[in-house]
Amino acid sequence: MSDIADFLRARYAEQRALALAASPGPWHSDGGSVYATHPTDEVVNYTESADHIAAHDPSAVLADLDAKLAIVDEHPAATGWDGREIDGNVCRTCSETSQDGELAGDVYPCRTLRLLAQPFAGHANHKGEEWAP
Score class of each variant (00 low, 15 high):
32 G>S: 12
47 T>N: 09
65 L>F: 08
24 P>E: 06
13 A>Y: 06
96 E>T: 10
130 E>S: 11
84 R>C: 03
108 Y>A: 00
28 H>T: 13
94 C>A: 00
1 M>P: 14
1 M>D: 14
125 N>A: 15
109 P>C: 05
120 F>W: 12
118 Q>Y: 12
103 L>H: 02
34 V>A: 14
95 S>L: 00
50 A>V: 10
24 P>Q: 05
61 V>T: 10
93 T>H: 12
71 I>G: 06
84 R>T: 08
115 L>K: 01
33 S>I: 12
26 P>K: 01
39 P>D: 11
84 R>I: 10
26 P>Y: 01
10 A>L: 05
74 E>S: 14
46 Y>V: 09
50 A>Y: 09
59 S>K: 12
77 A>I: 02
19 A>V: 06
87 D>I: 03
20 L>V: 07
58 P>A: 10
37 T>A: 14
59 S>V: 11
30 D>R: 15
53 I>S: 07
80 G>P: 00
86 I>N: 11
114 R>T: 02
20 L>T: 11
7 F>N: 10
34 V>S: 15
55 A>C: 06
9 R>H: 07
45 N>V: 14
124 A>E: 15
80 G>N: 05
87 D>E: 14
8 L>R: 06
6 D>W: 08
65 L>K: 09
35 Y>A: 04
20 L>D: 12
124 A>K: 09
2 S>E: 15
91 C>A: 05
23 S>M: 03
32 G>C: 11
75 H>R: 13
86 I>Y: 07
56 H>L: 05
110 C>F: 03
68 K>H: 11
4 I>K: 10
55 A>M: 08
38 H>D: 13
24 P>A: 05
83 G>V: 05
66 D>T: 12
80 G>D: 04
129 E>N: 11
59 S>C: 07
65 L>Q: 15
111 R>K: 04
87 D>W: 06
94 C>H: 00
99 Q>R: 04
38 H>C: 05
89 N>H: 07
47 T>Q: 10
8 L>C: 11
81 W>E: 11
121 A>C: 11
18 L>P: 00
82 D>R: 00
104 A>G: 09
104 A>W: 01
59 S>N: 12
109 P>S: 01
